[in-house]
Simulated scan of single mutants.
Amino acid sequence: MTVKSMNKSLAMLLVLILAVSVLVLPTSGEAATTYKMTTTVESNIRTGDSVKYPIIGYYKAGTTVIFNAKTKNNWYRITYKGKVGYVSGKCLAPYKVQSFAALNTEAKKHLGKKYKWGATGPTSFDCSGYTSYVFKQSINKVIPRTAKQQYNASTKIKASQLKAGDLVFFNYGSGIAHVGIYVGSGKMINAQNNGVKYDNVSSGYWKRYIAGYGRVANL
């Protein structure tokens, strides 16, 4: 092979390498890395990184997604059903490990805080305001606001399947009216009239009103 032919071959190889590089690099303004994020609200997926672009899908609140780039204006890119899609960073929060340890750590922070009907924290709570706050703050799990809604949204389980992190629901005679977080050993942590405290659900007052058990996160 002549020197001229070798130079021509090298030039063609260089062009090919540059072409491949362009294909794999992120578009202008995007940081090339991966981001594991959880949606905090129902989130639209758009074809570009602003609300002016068409919607091609959506994620439910509490969905964990790995995005492959982030734009300068705080939108996250993903491949969605074979298409490039973007979700606003305003709808996302960094993924938190979903474990009972994380949930329990957050739950215990609020021991002794006052009960107040309709309160969702962080200084006072009602029963479902407390459970929804704890799940959101600890593991980025969004659950419905009221005890009845939480009951309806949960996967129903038997007493024999109950484990730490599950929800215990109560009915005083007119439907689901109270909820607490099961912590093991027959106890729950809950916001009740005497504030945030531990209560025994395996005997005594609370046992007689148990309406069922639900799982909203597999911890």
Rank of each mutant, 00 (worst) to 15 (best):
D126G: 02
K8E: 15
A19D: 08
V20S: 13
S99D: 08
Y115C: 07
S28E: 14
V201T: 01
A217I: 03
A102M: 08
N194D: 15
P144H: 13
T120H: 05
G184L: 05
K70D: 09
N218C: 04
Y86G: 06
S5Q: 15
F125D: 05
Y198N: 02
N73T: 13
H178E: 13
Q192P: 00
S9A: 15
T2Y: 01
K72Y: 03
I139M: 13
K52P: 00
T40I: 15
K114T: 12
H178A: 11
K113S: 11
G173I: 06
V15N: 07
M12Q: 15
Y130T: 06
S9I: 12
F125Q: 06
Q192I: 07
I139E: 10
I55E: 14
E42F: 00
T131L: 02
I17Q: 09
A147I: 06
V196K: 03
S128V: 02
T34N: 13
G195Y: 04
V183E: 07
N73S: 10
V65T: 12
L10S: 09
L25W: 13
M188Q: 09
T63D: 12
L167T: 02
K36H: 04
A107H: 03
V65Q: 11
I176E: 03
K197N: 14
K116E: 14
L10H: 08
Y198H: 02
K141M: 10
N190I: 00
D199V: 03
V24Q: 08
V196A: 07
A159V: 05
N171W: 02
D126T: 03
Y35D: 08
A153L: 06
Q161V: 00
N74P: 00
K90P: 00
L25T: 15
L23Q: 12
T120L: 10
A211D: 11
T155E: 14
N152R: 08
C127H: 01
S154R: 00
K207I: 01
G214W: 02
I139R: 01
Y151E: 11
K72W: 00
C127E: 03
Y86N: 08
A32G: 00
T40N: 09
Q192K: 07
V97A: 15
F135H: 10
G89D: 12
S88H: 06
I66S: 13
N7D: 10
W206N: 10
I66Y: 03
S99Y: 03
G173P: 02
P144M: 13
K4H: 11
K207N: 11
F169P: 01
R215A: 08
G184N: 09
V84Y: 04
I45G: 02
S5R: 14
V201R: 00
D166G: 05
G85L: 05
R145C: 04
I157G: 07
T63I: 11
K96C: 07
V65C: 01
K141Y: 01
S154A: 15
P144Q: 13
S88I: 09
T34Q: 13
Y35R: 06
A61V: 02
L167S: 04
K4L: 13
S5L: 12
R208P: 00
Y86D: 09
A69Q: 07
S203R: 08
S5D: 14
